[in-house]
C-alpha cells in the first residue's frame, strides 16, 4: 500500500460564517502500481483531497501515510513528501517561468541539490517520458511551444523529481482532441513502463474508462463509491444522481441489453463494444 488515508477531515475557514466542510471523514487505501481515476463534479472535494497528498494542505483532523511516512505529523519533512508525490495542477503551463525548457524542468532537481550530471540526466529522461526531443528543444523558450507541448514541459518538471505517485488534476482541460490523445498516450506509457502509481482527476468519463483500473467517486466531501472501473460504471443510475455520467459507449451497451439483447453491459471502449457486438450478431445469425 503506497497511500493510506485515515479519517481525513478538512474544514475551510473554520469558526467563520464561511465555514465549509470540504472533506468529510475520508478513508482510502491506494496500492502501489494502481491507476486511480478520481471523479466527482465541481465542488465535490477532489482537488482538496489531492492537495493533501503532498502536504500542500494540512488536514483539520486525520492522518495520511505515504510510502510508510506520516506526512501529516508535525515534523514531516515536506521536501521528502514532495519527492514521493508529484502533483500536476490544472493548466500547469501557467506555472512555466524559465527562459529555456531545460532550466524549467531542472528547477526542481536543482533544489534537491543534486549534482549537475544527475540533474541533466533527470531532465533528459523526463523529456523522453513526455515525448519531447531533448537536443532539439532543451534550449528553446517554453513559451514558443503549442499548448499541448507546454503542458508536457510542465509534467516533465514534476517527473524530474522522480515521484513514486503522480497526481494529475484535469491534465487535458482546454486541449483539442489531438492534444488530449497525446497527453493521455504519454500518461499510459508512463504507467506501463515506469511502474509509477497514478491518480488521474478528470471530468471525462471516456478518458477515465480508457485508462484507469480503479475509480474513486467523490460527492459532497465524502467517498461515494470505490472499485474496479467496470464495477463503478455499472452503477449508471447512482452516478447520474450525483451529477456524473458514464461513457457513451457503456450507456449504449446497457440500453441495447435492456432491449432484450444478450450482451455484456460492462463495456468501456469502442473496441470492446465492436468485438462483443460482432460475436453477438453473428451468433444471432444476422451478420
Amino acid at each position: 500500500m503506497i497511500i493510506k488515508i485515515e479519517n481525513l477531515n478538512y474544514i475551510y475557514n473554520p469558526n467563520t460564517p464561511f465555514e465549509k466542510k470540504a472533506l468529510d471523514n475520508v478513508n482510502l487505501n491506494i496500492d502501489k502500481g494502481d491507476f486511480i481515476g478520481l471523479i466527482g463534479h465541481t465542488g465535490s472535494g477532489k482537488s482538496t483531497l489531492v492537495q493533501h497528498l503532498n502536504g500542500l494542505i494540512k488536514p483539520t483532523t486525520g492522518k495520511i501515510i505515504v510510502d510508510g511516512m506520516d506526512i501529516t505529523s508535525e515534523d514531516a519533512n515536506l521536501k521528502e513528501v514532495r519527492q514521493k508525490v508529484g502533483l500536476v495542477f490544472q493548466y500547469p503551463e501557467h506555472q512555466l517561468f524559465e527562459e529555456t525548457i531545460y532550466k524549467d524542468i531542472a528547477f526542481g532537481p536543482k533544489n534537491l541539490e543534486l549534482k549537475e550530471g544527475e540533474v541533466r540526466e533527470r531532465v533528459k529522461k523526463a523529456m523522453e517520458l513526455v515525448g519531447l526531443n531533448f537536443d532539439d528543444l532543451k534550449d528553446r523558450s517554453p513559451f514558443e511551444l503549442s499548448g499541448g507541448q507546454k503542458r508536457r514541459v510542465a509534467i516533465a518538471g514534476v517527473l524530474a523529481m522522480k515521484p513514486k505517485v503522480l497526481v494529475l488534476d484535469e491534465p487535458t482541460a482546454g486541449l483539442d482532441p489531438r492534444g488530449r490523445d497525446e497527453i493521455l498516450g504519454r500518461i499510459q506509457k508512463l504507467y506501463e513502463e515506469e511502474g509509477i502509481t497514478i491518480i488521474l482527476v478528470s471530468h471525462s468519463m471516456e478518458d477515465i474508462a480508457r485508462l484507469v483500473n480503479r475509480i474513486v467517486v467523490m460527492h459532497k466531501g465524502k467517498i461515494a463509491g470505490e472499485g474496479p472501473t467496470k464495477e463503478i460504471f455499472k452503477q449508471a443510475e447512482e452516478l447520474e444522481k450525483i451529477g456524473l455520467g458514464i461513457p457513451q459507449i457503456t450507456s449504449f451497451m446497457r440500453k441495447y441489453k435492456l432491449e432484450g439483447n444478450k450482451v455484456r453491459d460492462d463495456i468501456l471502449t469502442v473496441k470492446e463494444a465492436k468485438e462483443e457486438l460482432i460475436n453477438y450478431l453473428r451468433s444471432r445469425g444476422n451478420a
Binding site: 469502442v270 465492436k274 451478420a287
Partner: peptide
C-alpha cells in the same frame, strides 16, 4: 483532421466495415 466523432458513430462505422 484531429477531431472526434461520437462513440456510437464510431462503433456504427466499425460495424459497417465488418459487413453489418
Amino acid at each position: 483532421l484531429g477531431l472526434d466523432v461520437p462513440q456510437v458513430t464510431e462503433l456504427a462505422y466499425e460495424l459497417r466495415k465488418e459487413g453489418i
